[in-house]
């Protein structure tokens, strides 16, 4: 199959030009058809001027010569130049029709893979699905890079969303100073740090002092607001910190509250008693396990049976 891809464009344009200048007998028949068509429907608007322009520009541009590598085409180019001059003579031109097999134009690699997939022993017709799913190596690299980029952006966005309350001036995504430390603290906690960076170990007297100071500050703020008739938010309820530790003396009950010579059971206590067998089988006070010493006064933690 001799490939003459550069020629056919110019050849087509030539035929168009010839059409313009003096219609050959073949055009008469076309004219008849055209008239008939126009009688039936709307007239066809022809744009021959534009076509000629295109052909001119195509012929002018010379750089396609450099694309042709085979020597055969070089001689053809020279010939092209000659025929360009003769163009005005309305000489009948040879139209080059290239017939290309549709099966031959697929890329060879895919064909090979498909062939391999089809001609192996398995009874299946799915060859193209498999072959197309195999990515090209270059493409793979590009996709990997894009994936990494996307992941980076994703992470930045997540962090921004989580730490946005730290950013007073939301102009920089990488916080500095105090904000940076706070953000760092948040991230560490997210990753599983046990305690915050800001939870420091200090003497109890200091902590009490800090708490007392904070409480007095708040109290002062509220008092002043009240005096000035400003409605403030409700004070956050400070829960009684019993931390789940039950207060009992020696020989106290493991459940309920013993006061005034009576054991008072709350609803929760009742519920926990009822659900004990199913939930915490062999937890409780050691009982069956025979290690009574351990189960003992564990409070909530040991009763949970976890």
């Amino acid at each position: 199959m001799v490939v003459k891809r550069k020629r056919d464009t110019s050849v087509v344009s030539r035929s168009k030009k010839a059409e313009e200048s003096s219609p050959p007998p073949a055009d008469n028949a076309q004219d008849i058809f055209r008239k008939y068509f126009e009688a039936q429907f709307e007239p066809i608007e022809a744009a021959p001027v534009k076509a000629s322009e295109v052909s001119e520009s195509e012929e002018d541009d010379e750089d396609y010569n450099s694309e042709d590598l085979d020597g055969e085409s070089d001689s053809e180019e020279g010939w092209d130049g000659l025929s360009e001059e003769e163009e005005d003579d309305d000489e009948p031109k040879v139209e080059v029709v290239e017939h290309k097999d549709a099966s031959a134009d697929g890329d060879e690699l895919m064909q090979k893979q498909a062939r391999k997939a089809f001609l192996n022993g398995t009874p299946s017709l799915d060859v193209l699905a498999k072959s197309t799913s195999k990515p090209n190596s270059e493409k793979d690299k590009e996709e990997d890079a894009a994936d990494a980029d996307n992941l980076k952006h994703d992470l930045a966005l997540q962090r921004l969303l989580k730490e946005s309350h730290l950013l007073d001036s939301a102009d920089d995504l990488a916080p500095t100073g105090k904000n940076r430390l706070k953000a760092l603290d948040l991230r560490m906690q997210e990753l599983g740090a046990k305690t915050s960076l800001y939870k420091q170990k200090m003497p109890d007297a200091h902590r009490r002092g800090i708490n007392a100071k904070a409480a007095s500050k708040d109290e002062k703020r509220r008092r002043e607001a009240k005096e000035n008739g400003i409605v403030l938010e409700r004070p956050s309820k400070v829960s009684k910190s019993n931390n789940g530790h039950r207060e009992r003396g020696v020989g106290g009950s493991s459940i309920g509250k013993f006061s005034g010579g009576t054991l008072n059971l709350s609803k929760q206590d009742l519920f926990s008693m009822k659900s004990t067998p199913s939930r915490s089988g062999r937890g409780g006070r050691g009982g069956r396990s025979g290690r009574g010493g351990r189960g003992g006064r564990g409070g909530k933690g040991s009763r949970g049976g976890r």
């Binding site: 549709a102 099966s103 498909a114 062939r115 089809f118 001609l119 060859v127 193209l128």
Partner: peptide, 15 residues
């Protein structure tokens, strides 16, 4: 292929 392609474009025959 000349016969089958007009009827079924998804035609592949391996050699």
């Amino acid at each position: 292929r000349g016969i089958l392609n007009p009827m079924s474009p998804d035609t592949y025959i391996f050699s």
